[in-house]
């Protein structure tokens, strides 16, 4: 088998690479945030954020996502100690919370569209749907990733590489939380003011 030092080096590379990927993703979001900031006033005679956003509803979404950050932390703690059942349990809870968040977001989107305020209505709404939707798309990718990990853990025992992947997923999930804090503050709180 490969030398242990070399395996650690490989995992270190993956971790650094993933950090850098997250940074590039932040730049992508920065582009979308900047676009939203420029276009937020361009409502083209339609409703503005203050008229559209339901803050208690968004607060609920936010709380769900924050709790899911806690539950993924529990899953990581479990995996570090090699508790397979505990890890799978907390991963499933995380999945449920993520799915609930996504469902709420999609219901908000479809409600807006049904009321005639779709992404086609104004530049402001295009920027809103794209920014929030891109975050949602990331959550969806995360859910898919969770399914793959749960299935693997279920079928096989812990491998070193699984621990590495779980750690990367933890970074990804916390990152999405951070992005959401910005979405919540800039899009919803500042938009509703």
């Amino acid at each position: 088998m490969k030398h242990q030092a070399e395996e650690i080096a490989v995992q270190e590379r993956k971790t650094l690479g993933f950090w850098i990927y997250l940074m590039t993703d932040s730049v992508l979001f920065a582009g979308l945030f900047a676009t939203f900031a420029v276009l937020r006033g361009n409502t083209f005679g339609g409703p503005s954020g203050a008229e559209l956003f339901n803050l208690p509803f968004v607060l609920l979404e936010t709380m769900i996502l924050l709790v899911s950050s806690f539950t993924i932390g529990m899953a990581l703690l479990g995996s570090a100690r090699g508790f397979k059942k505990q890890t799978i349990f907390w991963l499933m809870i995380t999945f449920a919370l993520g799915a609930a968040f996504l469902t709420l977001e999609l219901s908000e989107f479809s409600k807006l569209a049904a009321e005639g305020n779709s992404w086609q209505s104004s530049a402001f709404l295009s920027a809103y749907f794209t920014l929030v939707g891109t975050h949602g798309l990331h959550i969806a990718v995360g859910l898919l990733w969770l399914i793959v990990m749960i299935v693997r853990l279920w079928r096989f025992n812990f491998k070193k590489s699984d621990l590495g992947r779980l750690a990367l997923f933890g970074m990804f999930w916390h990152f999405l939380d951070v992005i959401w804090i910005f979405v919540f503050s800039i899009v919803y709180l500042m938009g509703a003011a």
Binding site: T24, D25, V27, L28, G31, L32, T35, V38, L39, N42, T43, F44, W119, Q120, S121, S122, A123, F124, S126, A127, F129, T130
Partner: peptide, 30 residues
């Protein structure tokens, strides 16, 4: 730089595919 390109091309494409208004001359686009 490349994430900015990805986002920009994505938005132009959304304008063209989904009828959004990021960069159109109407509906508040810039």
């Amino acid at each position: 730089a490349f994430p900015i390109l990805t986002a920009t091309l994505g938005m132009l494409s959304l304008d063209r595919l989904m009828g959004m208004h990021f960069f159109t001359s109407g509906a508040g686009g810039n």
